[in-house]
Amino acid sequence: MKILNFFKPKKRRGFEVLDEFERYFNSDDAVKIPSRKTSQSAGYDICAIGSYVIQPGSKAIINTGLTAYMGEDEWLGLFVRSGLSYEFDLTLQNATGVIDSDFYGNHIRLLLRNEGTEPFIVNHGDRIAQGIFLPYLKADEDKASAKRTGGFGSTGVAA
C-alpha cells in the first residue's frame, strides 16, 4: 500500500545532526540533540562537541554539530546558560546568536567570550547555551530578496 505524502506529519521546528558529525552519533562522543529539561523551560540546552580552553579576555568558536529547521517566520535565539554567565563570566561575543530559518543545513557554532580572570574549560558534551525558537514580524514594504550564500557570519557578505 502506498502512503501519500500529505498524510505524513510535517516537521515544524527542531534540530538535526549535520552529516559530517553523524559518525559521532551512536558512540560515547555523540552529538547531543538539544532538549528542554522541564516542561516549562523555554530553552533547549545546546551542548559543545569537542573540548576547548578559553583564556581570560579571549574568545573561542564552539562547535555543536547541529543545524536547526523552523518556519519561514521564525528564528532561533542563542543565549549562554545563565549559570555560566554568573559563575564564570562567560558571554556570547555578539550578545545573542541569531539563527535565521534559511540557515538550515549550516553548522550552528557559538562564539563564547571569557570575561573572567581564569581560563574556562569547555568539555565535550557540556551544556553551554540555550536555544529558543521565536516568531518574528516583517515591516511594511519589506523587499528582502537575497539568498543565503554561506554559514557562520555570511549574511551581507558578497558571493
Rank of each mutant, 00 (worst) to 15 (best):
K11N: 04
P9M: 02
R13P: 01
Y24G: 01
F25I: 07
E16K: 14
T38L: 06
S35G: 11
A30E: 11
K37T: 14
P9R: 11
K11D: 00
S27Q: 07
G14D: 03
K37L: 12
N26W: 00
Q40E: 10
E20T: 01
N26I: 09
D19P: 13
K8T: 01
F15N: 01
F21G: 07
G14H: 08
D19E: 15
E22N: 11
G14I: 05
E20D: 10
E16C: 12
D19Y: 09
S27D: 06
V31Q: 06
V31N: 06
V31T: 09
E16M: 15
K8I: 02
S35M: 10
T38R: 10
V31M: 10
F15Y: 08
S27G: 15
F25W: 08
K10R: 04
R36E: 02
V17I: 15
D29I: 07
E22C: 03
F15P: 05
P34T: 07
I33L: 08
D19F: 05
D19G: 14
K37C: 09
S39K: 13
I33W: 00
R13T: 07
Y24Q: 03
F15H: 03
V31L: 05
K32W: 07
V31S: 07
V31K: 01
S39M: 11
E16L: 15
F21M: 01
V31H: 07
A30W: 06
E22T: 12
P9E: 14
E16Y: 09
P9V: 01
V17R: 01
E16R: 15
T38K: 11
D28L: 09
R12S: 14
Q40K: 10
L18M: 05
S35R: 14
E16W: 03
Y24F: 12
K37E: 12
K32A: 10
N26E: 10
D29P: 00
V31R: 07
K37M: 11
F25D: 13
N26Y: 05
I33T: 02
E20A: 06
R23T: 08
G14T: 07
P34I: 05
R36N: 04
R12E: 14
K37P: 03
Y24V: 00
F21H: 07
E20M: 06
S27K: 05
Y24R: 10
L18I: 00
E20W: 01
Q40P: 00
E22L: 11
S35D: 10
P9N: 11
K37F: 09
D29L: 14
K32I: 15
P9T: 08
K8S: 02
P34Q: 04
S39D: 15
R23E: 15
K11P: 00
V31E: 07
F21V: 02
N26T: 11
K10G: 00
S35I: 15
P34G: 06
E22R: 11
R23H: 15
E22A: 13
T38E: 10
